[in-house]
Nucleic acid binder design. Structure first.
Length: 427
RNA sequence: GGUGGUUUACCGAAGUGGCCAACCGGGGCAGACUGUAAAUCUGCUGGCUUACGCCUUCCUUGGUUCGAAUCCAAGAGCCACCA
C-alpha cells in the first residue's frame, strides 16, 4: 500500500493543495514534511494525536519529519473566545515545554535513530532576533491583503457580532506562513500537514514560498479532518478537560478510561487513526463491535494500545488494576496500602478522627473539600448517589470507626465512577 | 475621537418596580434502564446548622423608592458604524 492509500484508508486526508494524483505521486519520493504544535503546556494532549500519528506514518514511509513547536506563535496565539489574555511564555518555560513535548513525541516518532531521525525545531529561534522593520521589508511585502482577508478564519471574525479580531491575531497567518518558508530554505521542507482548521495558515505558507521563490517550487499542504465523536464533539476532551499525555496531568486510569469509553460508532475509526494495527485486525474488531458490542473488545484494544504506547507497561497495569476495582465492585480483602496505591490519583482528604468519627459522612466529605459545597453532598446523598466503601448511604449516615479500612481509610463514591478517599488520622 | 447598541448564573436567553435565587433551552451532575454504552424517562443545578427561614447574586459605584435585575446618574467592558 502506498503512503497516500494508507493515509486515505485511515481517515487522514481531508484536502490537499494539489490534486490527489499529484499528491500521491509526491509522496512516493522521500520528502521533508512538517507539522506544528502549540507549546502552551509542557505536554501534549490527545487532541494532538492525529497530527502525531500522521507524522509517524510519514516517518515510517521514509520521509523526513519535522515537528515544529511554536514558541513564538504560541505567544501571540489564536486567542479564540473572550479572554484575549495570552500568557507571554518565558524563554525558560518554552524550553521546558519543548523538552516535555519532545518526550511525548518520542513515544510515536523516532528522534534518535541513525537512519532518518525526526527533528524538533522551535520557531522562536528564528523570530527572537528578527526585528519589525526588516521583517516587514523582507517578508511583509510578499503578503497581499486580499488573500489574508479572504481567509475563512478572518472573514468569520470580521462579520461576527462579537469577538472581533485583533491585529495580532490577524498576523498569525504571516508568522505560520513564514515558518514554512523558513523550513523550506533550511531543510528543503516542501510539505506541511495539519488539521483542516490549519488550511488557511498552510496556504499562507505555500503562497509565500511560491511568491518568494517562484511558481515551480513544489510546496504543498495536506490537511486531515478534525476528529469528532459521533455527537460532533471535538475529540480529546473528557468532561470539558483535555486528556493530557503526562501522568501528572491525566492519570493512567483516566487516560485508559477515556479510550475505553469510546462510542461504538467511533471506535473503528479511532482504531484506524490512533493505532498502527493492521487493517485485518481492525476488520476483526469491527466484526466484534457488530456481533458482541457489550463486550467492548474494540474499545479495550484501543485503550490498551494507546495506554501502552504513551504510558508503557507500568502505566497500563496500573490503569487496569484501578479499573478492575472501580468496576469490579468489591473492596473486600484489600488492605489500606493496596487501596492507597489503586486510588493514588483519586481526590482525597485527610481529617482528624476526632472531628470525622461520630458525625455524618456528608459533613466529613464537605469538610474535606472533596465537593463544591455541603449542599451538593447532601443533594447527592438524597438522590442516592453516595456510597461509602461501595455501599449506598443516605444523608444522615454517621461515620463509624468500623467503616475505616485498616483503621484509617474510607472509600467514598458519588455516582458510578467518581471515587474519593477519606484518610482519617488519630483514630 | 463621534454616534448607536449591548452587559442577567457554565453557555445561550427571558424578565423592564413587589408573585425573583430569577421562565426556558443547551451543558453539567444524579437516579431508573443498560454494555463502564447509545437512546429514553425522572430529579437536581448560588450558599447556610434543610430552613414555607436567613445570607450573597442580574458589569461597577452612587441615587430614587416602603420595596430595584427592572427607574435615574456617573463610570467600566464589549460590539457596530463613522472619523
Amino acid at each position: 500500500m502506498s503512503l497516500y492509500e494508507i493515509l486515505k484508508a485511515r481517515h487522514f486526508i481531508d484536502d490537499h493543495t494539489c490534486s490527489a494524483e499529484v499528491m500521491a505521486k509526491l509522496l512516493e519520493k522521500p520528502l521533508t514534511v512538517y507539522a506544528g504544535f502549540d507549546p502552551t503546556a509542557e505536554c501534549l494532549q490527545a487532541g494532538n494525536f492525529v497530527t502525531i500519528m500522521a507524522l509517524a506514518h510519514f516517518q515510517r514511509a521514509g520521509h523526513k519529519v519535522i515537528a515544529l513547536v511554536g514558541g513564538a506563535t504560541g505567544m501571540i496565539g489564536d486567542p479564540s473566545g473572550r479572554s484575549v489574555e495570552r500568557n507571554m511564555l518565558t524563554e525558560e518555560q518554552v524550553a521546558k515545554n519543548l523538552a516535555g513535548i519532545k518526550e511525548n513525541l518520542s513515544r510515536f516518532l523516532n528522534f534518535d535513530g541513525r537512519d532518518n531521525p525526526a527533528i524538533l525545531v522551535n520557531n522562536f529561534d528564528w523570530y527572537k532576533d528578527y526585528t519589525l522593520i526588516p521583517f516587514l521589508r523582507e517578508v511583509g511585502v510578499l503578503f497581499r491583503m486580499n488573500p489574508m482577508l479572504n481567509k475563512e478564519s478572518v472573514r468569520k471574525r470580521l462579520n461576527a457580532e462579537t469577538d472581533s479580531m485583533t491585529f495580532t491575531e490577524f498576523c498569525y497567518q504571516i508568522l505560520q506562513g513564514y515558518d514554512f518558508y523558513h523550513l523550506y530554505r533550511e531543510h528543503n521542507c516542501t510539505l506541511q500537514i495539519g488539521g483542516s482548521d490549519q488550511w488557511g495558515n498552510i496556504t499562507a505558507g505555500t503562497d509565500l514560498i511560491r511568491r518568494a521563490i517562484g511558481p515551480e517550487v513544489p510546496a504543498n499542504g495536506l490537511t486531515f479532518p478534525l476528529v469528532c465523536d459521533a455527537h460532533g464533539q471535538k475529540f480529546g476532551k473528557s468532561a470539558g478537560n483535555a486528556i493530557f499525555l503526562n501522568a501528572e496531568k491525566t492519570s493512567y486510569y483516566d487516560f485508559y478510561q477515556f479510550f475505553l469509553r469510546t462510542l461504538d460508532a467511533d471506535v473503528v475509526r479511532y482504531l484506524k487513526i490512533f493505532t498502527f494495527l493492521s487493517f485485518e485486525r481492525i476488520a476483526e474488531l469491527e466484526e466484534q463491535v457488530r456481533t458482541a458490542p457489550e463486550k467492548r473488545e474494540a474499545q479495550r484494544v484501543l485503550a490498551e494500545e494507546l495506554t501502552l504506547r504513551v504510558h508503557g507497561e507500568k502505566g497500563l497495569k496500573a490503569a487496569q488494576a484501578a479499573s478492575a476495582v472501580f468496576f469490579g465492585g468489591s473492596l473486600d480483602g484489600l488492605s489500606a496500602e493496596e487501596l492507597e496505591a489503586i486510588f493514588k490519583e483519586v481526590p482525597s482528604a485527610t481529617l482528624e478522627a476526632s472531628v470525622a468519627l461520630g458525625n455524618p459522612v456528608i459533613d466529613a466529605a464537605a469538610a474535606g473539600g472533596l465537593f463544591a459545597s455541603k449542599g451538593e453532598v447532601r443533594r447527592l446523598a438524597q438522590q442516592g448517589a453516595l456510597s461509602l466503601n461501595n455501599t449506598k448511604i443516605d444523608a444522615v449516615r454517621v461515620l463509624e470507626k468500623s467503616d475505616l479500612i485498616g483503621g484509617r481509610i474510607a472509600v467514598l463514591r458519588s455516582g458510578k465512577k467518581n471515587y474519593y478517599l477519606l484518610k482519617i488520622t488519630g483514630a
